[in-house]
Design a protein around this nucleic acid. Sequence first.
DNA 1: AAGACGAAAGTGGTTGA
DNA 2: TCAACAACTTTCGTCTT
Length: 309
Amino acid sequence: MQHYVKKCTDCGSINLFVNRDKGEIVCRDCGLVIEDKMVEFGQEWREFEDGDSSGRRRTGAPMTYTQFDQGLGTEVGQKADLFQLASKDRNKFFRLRKWQYRISTAIERNLKLALAELKRVSSFLKLPKMVEEESAMIYTQAVQRGLVRGRSMESVVAGALYAACRRHEVPRTLDELSEASGIEKKEIGRTYRFVTRELGLTILPSNPADYIARFASSLKLNAETQSKAVEILEQAQKAELTSGRGPTGIAAAALYVAALMHGEKRTQREVADVAGVTEVTIRNRYKELLEKLKLDKELKKQKKKPKGR
DNA sequence: AAGACGAAAGTGGTTGA
DNA sequence: TCAACAACTTTCGTCTT
């Protein structure tokens, strides 16, 4: 059965919040999303080692994708098959097996390198284990389908990581991925799109709210401000201010407004920097928010009595 | 002096003929 | 395949605190 993590994998806190609607567990201390119930990916891929030993074993289930060899290899034929072949078929048979061997060792070599890189980037970004696993799986499938050909290994790794983040609603921006992996942003975007399309991964459009926690914590905003920002976002969603816009810009603007309203003023520049957008974008979103949501009044109130900064 | 604001021109990506 | 298009950026001048 599915096991639940009891401690935050990042900060070790046991102060966790279980959100059943979204099926995720969030650390109250650092905001990390620890685990959410993930998607079928065609095959079963969780670990079944403990507690399930008596039960049936699921087929084709690699135990963990961050180790490349687990039961993945395919061999052409067994000895028994060999004896049944006419001799003229043997050459063909051996050729096939040779090729199979070459291909699989090539894949293994590639995976070994790639997974090392993947772990590096993942730990740099402090990504949850689940995400790392998922991206490793995505990468593995990409390699097996020959999608890496013509692309750099690193860029596919970055693309896989980005996709995994998105699927787990632990979004990192392309900029962050880019910084961590040293791959250009647009390159990551390209391979990301390519890989997800080829593998038929469904990616939910990313939700601005998912960025709030992280941005807020790097801006050292308190929890109130943070939930205010989420509230604003919800209204914005209803007012259809969010469609078509970049989620980070919206998140940044909501956070900016929320900070103003709670007297925790941050400059547009500060917010823009952590969100990876420009001040201009924040201004535009911010303006829309004020207009459409009539937040002006609330804002005015706060402006009169300025609090420390 | 720093921050906020907005106009104008440029960029990369999506879409639809 | 190309052009139109929207979102976002860059840059820069002006206003506000």
